[in-house]
Write a protein that binds this DNA or RNA. Structure first.
Lengths: 226, 226
DNA sequence: ACCTGAACACCGTTCAAGT
DNA sequence: ACCTGAACACCGTTCAAGT
């Protein structure tokens, strides 16, 4: 039969199956043909529900961004807001690390991403940061989260001792990194977030609104609205 | 002729041509066939010089990492060492942002990357940080650099005003981000790096060696050698 | 509206064959 | 050793055809 009385496919079902493949085998491993066969259907059938493969990835990205929590800004405490945002953002990405390259393209037209960006910027400005600095803090935090979600520091090292011995004396324990990768990644992220927020707080309290030692983000820029 | 007296191809030439395509059109745009035709040669010819496409990408990644400067650690000033490392690392990646997903896989067996990792770890430990914290600082910095190199915060926003008006009140200036993306990305990176180093410095000076408010990186972990 | 089968223009990689 | 031509098993997307 060419058309069953109740549809076999749905946009949501296609997204779910695609994300399963991506999580299990990586982003490059997702092909429309493999996806179709996982759903027990012909390739061309997918195109009745999805415009292109990119369209599909955008939708999955939109779903993932929906898990990001920006409610912390409603307390009026920007530090709490950023911390909650950053942690939930990292958790959402780490649940699907192979999707990070897609999310890294920015909010674009994904409504969940735009809604989060709006809340973050509004929260920071509402707490007293000049708009220009709200932008920079949002950007910095995003860098940290995306970087932390994309790379596993520990998993980047081979667990073969022979690679390090002799040639790289300070990496003589690097072969152990892989086994503890999860913990190291978590601790490194928390260290970075805490140190970053501490540094920001002293800027804020001192009313400097300046990255010290950096010329281009100068005082006369502070009135800009972006 | 099947074999010219002087070889047409070389590994270095293939890498250079491949990087040109990647820089111009993106990582997914690199195909062995397009690369071959850019070099005026048949596809199969490439495989006399390069094992696989991944092998080619690893070599290009290795070349890019060679631009990273870790000489700042030789001064004994860890803060200067990290700053120099982070800035040159970001500069090297930003020169070839489409290569970031390849570099994000970690040092692996790339010798330039391993050499840099060795210098960073050695520099931090030599300056007095416990090995465990040297690892975390190296990881944190890498997150920041990779995130900052991979995403352009500004370029992630569409420059169409209509998208933001009404629905996202705090993003009413977001359409201007694209035009100033370069500057915003630079300033945000510098802000993050400075705030992060400031935060680390106070940890170091206080001798805490602890990310405050974070339990798992506990005191009894400080003796670990990774 | 939804699924199929076939087609089109692509991929990475291998391999026997030539020089 | 180095390049070719052909082949194999893949891609994303389109489209007429069926119900």
């Amino acid at each position: 039969m060419a058309r069953p009385r109740t549809p076999i496919l749905s946009r949501a079902g296609i997204c779910a199956a695609a994300l399963e493949i991506i999580d299990a085998d990586g982003l490059p491993a997702l092909s429309m043909r493999k996806l179709a066969s996982a759903l027990g259907v012909q390739v061309a059938s997918l195109y009745s529900h999805v415009k292109t493969k990119d369209d599909l990835l955008e939708e999955i990205g939109n779903e993932i961004m929906a898990e990001v929590d920006v409610s912390g800004f409603s307390t009026g405490d920007w530090r709490q807001g950023v911390a909650t945002w950053a942690r939930s953002y990292r958790a959402a990405l780490r649940a699907h690390p192979n999707m990070v390259p897609v999310l890294a393209t920015g909010p674009g037209r994904r409504e969940t991403a735009l809604q989060r960006a709006d809340a973050v910027h509004g929260g920071l400005v509402g707490a007293g940061w000049p708009p220009r600095h709200a932008t920079l803090i949002g950007a910095s935090t995003k860098y940290l989260v995306l970087g932390a979600a994309m790379t596993s520091f520990g998993k980047g090292f081979a667990d073969d001792v022979q690679i390090y011995v002799d040639r790289y004396p300070h990496l003589d324990q690097a072969h152990r990194l892989r086994a503890n990768a999860e913990e190291i990644d978590r601790d490194a992220f928390e260290l970075a977030l805490t140190a970053f927020l501490d540094g920001l707080e002293s800027l804020y309290i001192n009313g400097e609104f300046l990255a010290k030692g950096h010329q281009s983000c100068a005082v006369e820029d502070s009135h800009r609205s972006w």
